[in-house]
Write a protein that binds this DNA or RNA. Structure first.
Lengths: 105, 105
DNA sequence: GCCCTGAATCGAGGGGTGTCAATATAGAAG
DNA sequence: CTTCTATATTGACACCCCTCGATTCAGGGC
């Protein structure tokens, strides 16, 4: 949607509009780190996981884990809930399936 | 697999080993950019796409598009073949399905 | 109230990333 | 061989990201 380019030859190729690409890319970007992938995997393995179980599973500082969880949360991949002293994380329902559906196209 | 952490409570949570996480994260990282996502989408929409069709579809310089294609290639998501003056790109068979399968777990 | 623990935020440092203009390379055509 | 076109590479710049130590915030228990 920019230049003189879409001259018949590639009119139909633009399968993904820029807005949706921004949206999806932001979520894939959140998955683009080994630590976050493992965190997500650990959370997805259960209904709910306490941060106190996630943090000691890595050789990283507590603030670093908290930072990665924040990025996953901002990407709308996980959600958190505080209960007393502890905070529990869970996967946002359907979030991963939406990405999987895009890749399977 | 690091600390004193896996004390019964979270022994089974480590669903993803570090090596495989590195592998998958590298591919998701390549998807974590709107331009690359659109490039991949355009390539996946056909069996084969010439660079000369991809470059003019963006408001970006030719070297920038070439750079993004290189990153997608290094992530083993796409493959290229030169035929005469032109270079054609195609999606590596099964690459996207592998990622989709992980997300659908 | 005070302290203790779990988790988030702040600020800084080192490395990585997206973009460009300029240049180099590959192949075809004259 | 020379020239032209299509891609790739290089070098530079601004910006972003991962990590840490230090600090702050939230709740529970004394």
């Amino acid at each position: 949607m920019s230049k003189q380019a879409e001259s018949a030859c590639c009119a139909g190729i633009t399968a993904l509009d820029a807005a949706r690409a921004d949206d999806l890319a932001a979520q894939f970007k959140a998955l683009g780190d080994p630590v976050r992938l493992r965190l997500l995997s650990m959370i997805a393995a259960r209904d709910e996981v306490c941060v106190c179980e996630l943090t000691p599973a890595f050789d990283l500082s507590q603030p670093t884990i908290s930072h990665h969880l924040k990025l996953l949360r901002q990407a709308a991949l996980i959600d958190s809930e505080r209960r007393g002293t502890w905070v529990y994380y869970r996967v946002v329902p359907g979030a991963l399936d939406r990405l999987a559906a895009f890749l399977a196209t």
